[in-house]
């Protein structure tokens, strides 16, 4: 059927198709980022030319200088973002993993465990916008509007179901004999959780922490509804460059680039754990 030449030709075609598909996907993903970065170093007048220039005629860092100007509040937005992300991550992972362990191990009557677990899942089903207004009113009544706490509570409520479900899968896959063995060795529930179960789910915990942190760092909708000035996070700061006097493209691009950098660094560092965590347990050792 195939002689050697046609088969090697087919191989090359095959490889070429694969490379093409990968290249296309890469372009789709990276073009917005590249364009964002180019905009952040583009002289202001070039935003107004028609057609707009894609590659800047010369580089300028004035937009970065502008956003890092001591008169600007970038520093406090950054601190808000960090405090909110770190707090959300710690609270979500701590409560979420404890809840998941209990749900995984407790034998409640009437399939209550499954019902509770399902209730967590439902929270993920509806659009976030539906709870934004009630949440705003709730925070207003609690006199928590425009505080970091309000944003943290919002982010925990967004990320907790995700952590519970991720950890539940992992705990369910851990053999019950390990719990039983620890019980017979004299462990109470806390000792079992901390000394036996937690060390075995470190990759899962890291995955949960990483994804929670990313979600909180990037979250816009809830944060924008309850944090209008003092507790403003970086994504909201970006949107505030859209003003009634027009859009400040340069500083907006510079700010966006600054937000992306920690995420990129974090992703690079974390990808090893992420991949491991997401596939752990899929294949038996």
């Amino acid at each position: 059927m195939y002689d050697e030449r046609t088969s090697s030709l087919l191989n090359i075609l095959n490889a070429a198709t694969r490379v093409l598909v990968i290249l296309l996907s890469l372009i789709v993903v990276s073009v917005p980022f590249v364009y964002l970065f180019l905009n952040s170093v583009k002289p202001p007048q070039e935003f107004l030319t028609v057609p707009p220039t894609i590659i800047p005629t010369h580089l300028t860092f004035e937009h970065y200088a502008a956003i890092f100007d001591p008169n600007q509040d970038t520093r406090s937005y950054f601190i808000n973002s960090v405090v909110i992300t770190v707090s959300t991550t710690i609270i979500s992972v701590l409560i979420g993993s404890l809840a998941a362990f209990s749900l995984s191990r407790l034998k409640l009557p009437f399939r209550l465990s499954s019902l509770i677990a399902f209730a967590f899942l439902i929270v993920r089903f509806y659009p976030k916008i539906t709870t934004t207004l009630p949440y705003f009113i709730l925070m207003k009544d609690l006199h928590l509007l425009d505080t970091q706490i309000a944003v943290i509570v919002a982010h925990v409520s967004l990320t907790l179901p995700f952590v519970v479900w991720l950890m539940l899968t992992f705990f369910d896959e851990l053999p019950r004999e390990l719990d039983q063995s620890a019980m017979l060795d004299g462990c109470g529930p806390w000792q079992r959780f901390i000394q036996v179960i937690l060390p075995l789910t470190t990759p899962a915990l890291l995955t949960a922490a990483i994804l929670t942190a990313l979600l909180s760092w990037n979250e816009f909708l809830m944060a924008s509804s309850v944090a209008s000035s003092n507790a403003k996070t970086l994504p909201i700061a970006v949107s505030s460059f859209i003003t009634d006097k027009g859009v400040q493209w340069g500083p907006m691009s510079a700010m966006s680039s600054v937000i992306v950098v920690p995420v990129m660094l974090f992703a690079l560092f974390a990808q090893r754990y992420l991949v491991r965590g997401l596939t752990l347990g899929a294949v038996k050792e």
Binding site: P175, S181, M183, L184, G186
Partner: peptide, 15 residues
């Protein structure tokens, strides 16, 4: 409770 019975068990899967 199991922890207080002073019993040791060897599991089929070793655990």
């Amino acid at each position: 409770p199991a922890a207080k019975r002073d019993i040791a068990m060897v599991f089929q899967t070793y655990a």
